[in-house]
């Protein structure tokens, strides 16, 4: 990794996102540190997911979405025309709210990203398959079922598999959009343990509705309300002495 742990990896400047005439994000400014977990909290429809999807330009897929401002990733603006979009998405991976493994075999799911990026050497693919499944603690469970369709796995296994699918590509950033909302509490706890482990090597940004989860796993927390980033800071400060009364209202459960 070029950027050391704790240094700034992503810098967001004056980011505005519009869906048609609706402004989903208002003038977001933010710096994110490498090898840390940043949690984004706030009520539904307040721009958390939109912000997350700006970072790997997934909003490009939405008809009528328009973006203003800059997002610097390792010092380069991802919205500049020189950006290699496919390479950006390889380096900034994403885990979705509902596990979405492809209806292919487990092995094909994990090696999918490598294959679309032109890597076809079988020995290398198998090595990455082993490594990636190890990294999400699935290898022992699934090593005899690599040819099985991924849709036959449990929800938790599917979500781990989606993570393995990313890790195979050696990304630098992992974006997680409420990755545990479809999982039971025990599975959630295990995924959180995994995030803690992954933090050593990857920069993780997680959107969550679950404030306990944000408090448990994250180093930094940002609070989004109606498209604005109301407050951003170290997690224990946000949760113990928030500066903005609106943040306090939310985390003490007065609304939301």
């Amino acid at each position: 990794m070029k950027v050391e742990a704790g240094e700034y990896l992503i810098e967001v400047r004056n980011l505005n996102v519009f869906y048609g005439s609706f402004q989903a994000l208002k003038d977001i400014n933010l710096k994110l540190q490498a090898a840390r977990i940043t949690a984004l909290i706030g009520p539904s429809g307040c721009g958390k997911s939109t912000f997350l999807r700006s970072l790997n330009r997934m909003n490009d897929l939405i008809d009528g979405a328009r973006t203003e401002g800059e997002v610097f990733f390792e010092g380069k603006d991802i919205f500049s025309p020189e950006t290699d979009l496919l390479e950006l998405r390889r380096r900034v991976g994403m885990v979705f709210q509902r596990p979405n493994p492809f209806p292919l075999s487990i092995a094909d799911n994990v090696t999918y990203g490598l294959r679309v990026h032109g890597q076809n050497d079988r020995a290398w693919l198998e090595e990455r398959l082993y490594w990636s499944l190890q990294a999400v603690n699935l290898w022992d469970e699934l090593k005899d079922r690599l040819k099985v369709n991924a849709l036959e796995l449990t929800g938790e296994q599917q979500q781990r598999l989606c993570l393995a699918r990313l890790l195979a590509l050696e990304p630098e950033v992992i974006l997680m959009d409420e990755p545990c909302s479809a999982l039971d509490p025990l599975a959630t706890a295990r995924i959180e343990d995994l995030m803690y482990e992954l933090k050593k090597k990857y920069t993780i940004i997680i959107v969550t509705h679950n404030m306990q989860q944000a408090a448990r796993v994250s180093d930094f927390t940002g609070y989004f309300l109606l498209g604005e980033l109301v407050e951003f800071g170290e997690t224990n400060e946000i949760f113990t002495k928030p500066k903005d009364p609106r943040t306090e209202d939310y985390i003490t459960g007065r609304f939301g």
């Binding site: 998405r89 390889r90 990313l166």
Partner: peptide, 17 residues
């Protein structure tokens, strides 16, 4: 389901892939 397309695009695949 669109979630398959999103998953694939998010891994850096092209539309045709």
């Amino acid at each position: 389901p669109d979630c398959y397309r999103e998953g694939s695009i998010a891994l850096g695949a092209t539309r045709w892939q």
